[in-house]
Amino acid sequence: MGDQPVDFHLILASSNKLTGVVRDLEGRRVPSAVIVLTDVRGEVVTSGSTDAAGCYSFSGVGSGSYTLAVGAASYCPAAVPVEVNGTGQTRQDVELRPGVRIRGTVRARDGVPLNDARVTLLDTAGNVVGTTTTGADGAYTFADLTGGQYTLIATGYPPVADTVIVDGRDDDRDLWLVHAE
């Protein structure tokens, strides 16, 4: 002050806007989808959710490259690259594929549901996709699966395995565990 210069740092907020619509494969809008925008380092820039019409909008997004991650109940999550330019508004619509579910009941030879049986789901490469333990009703579920072939393995008695091909529809698959005699 006086006759000395004063350093003053001013941060200007970007006026860019990122908008879009989240739809399923049949074109229906997906409400309440969670949207996360991350920068090239993977840090969250902003997040929100779609409105009742499946629309989202983020204001103040700086120009640059981002990843837009979208998730919603009963759908497989999606991540798409997006380039926000300095023209004021960038639109990025996202299409979500339905998540397929494999579910069933682990039963003993007499048909009684088995409590505490461990069920493991493997992909075609033998990687574990998920593991769960049945409750008193013997039920298990694996959700949000993509298409392809899987192997179910149930243990708790001598193990049993079953091959499942996921083709876009839910699959009900009971597994039977029996003691060797």
Rank of each mutant, 00 (worst) to 15 (best):
38 T>Q: 03
40 V>I: 14
43 E>R: 14
45 V>W: 10
47 S>N: 06
48 G>Q: 07
49 S>F: 10
50 T>Q: 08
54 G>W: 07
55 C>R: 14
55 C>H: 13
57 S>E: 12
58 F>Q: 05
58 F>I: 09
61 V>P: 05
61 V>R: 05
62 G>C: 10
62 G>M: 01
63 S>K: 11
63 S>P: 01
64 G>L: 10
65 S>R: 15
65 S>V: 09
65 S>C: 11
66 Y>T: 04
70 V>T: 04
71 G>N: 12
72 A>M: 05
72 A>S: 15
73 A>C: 13
73 A>T: 15
74 S>R: 15
74 S>G: 15
76 C>Y: 00
78 A>W: 10
79 A>W: 11
82 V>S: 08
83 E>W: 03
84 V>K: 02
86 G>W: 00
86 G>E: 15
86 G>M: 10
88 G>N: 01
88 G>C: 12
89 Q>R: 14
89 Q>A: 14
89 Q>T: 15
92 Q>L: 03
92 Q>C: 13
93 D>S: 06
94 V>I: 12
96 L>C: 03
97 R>K: 14
97 R>S: 13
97 R>G: 06
99 G>R: 01
99 G>F: 11
102 I>F: 08
103 R>N: 12
105 T>G: 07
105 T>K: 09
107 R>D: 04
107 R>Y: 12
108 A>F: 04
111 G>R: 10
112 V>A: 12
113 P>E: 02
114 L>E: 02
116 D>T: 13
118 R>F: 02
118 R>A: 09
120 T>W: 02
121 L>M: 11
123 D>P: 08
123 D>Y: 06
124 T>R: 13
127 N>G: 09
130 G>D: 08
130 G>I: 09
131 T>D: 11
132 T>G: 03
133 T>F: 05
134 T>G: 04
134 T>I: 02
136 A>N: 01
137 D>S: 15
138 G>D: 02
138 G>R: 10
139 A>C: 07
139 A>G: 12
139 A>I: 03
139 A>T: 09
141 T>L: 00
142 F>K: 02
142 F>R: 06
144 D>W: 05
144 D>C: 07
144 D>M: 06
145 L>K: 01
146 T>P: 05
146 T>F: 10
147 G>F: 07
147 G>S: 11
147 G>T: 07
148 G>K: 01
148 G>D: 07
149 Q>A: 15
149 Q>D: 07
151 T>H: 02
151 T>V: 12
152 L>R: 12
153 I>A: 02
154 A>L: 03
154 A>C: 03
155 T>E: 12
156 G>Q: 03
156 G>F: 08
157 Y>L: 13
158 P>H: 14
158 P>Y: 14
159 P>A: 05
159 P>N: 01
160 V>H: 06
160 V>Q: 13
162 D>E: 15
162 D>C: 11
163 T>G: 01
163 T>E: 09
164 V>H: 00
165 I>R: 10
165 I>M: 07
168 G>T: 06
171 D>W: 07
171 D>T: 13
172 D>P: 12
172 D>N: 13
172 D>C: 11
174 D>Q: 13
174 D>R: 14
174 D>L: 07
174 D>A: 12
174 D>M: 13
175 L>N: 08
176 W>P: 02
177 L>K: 07
177 L>H: 06
178 V>Y: 04
180 A>N: 03
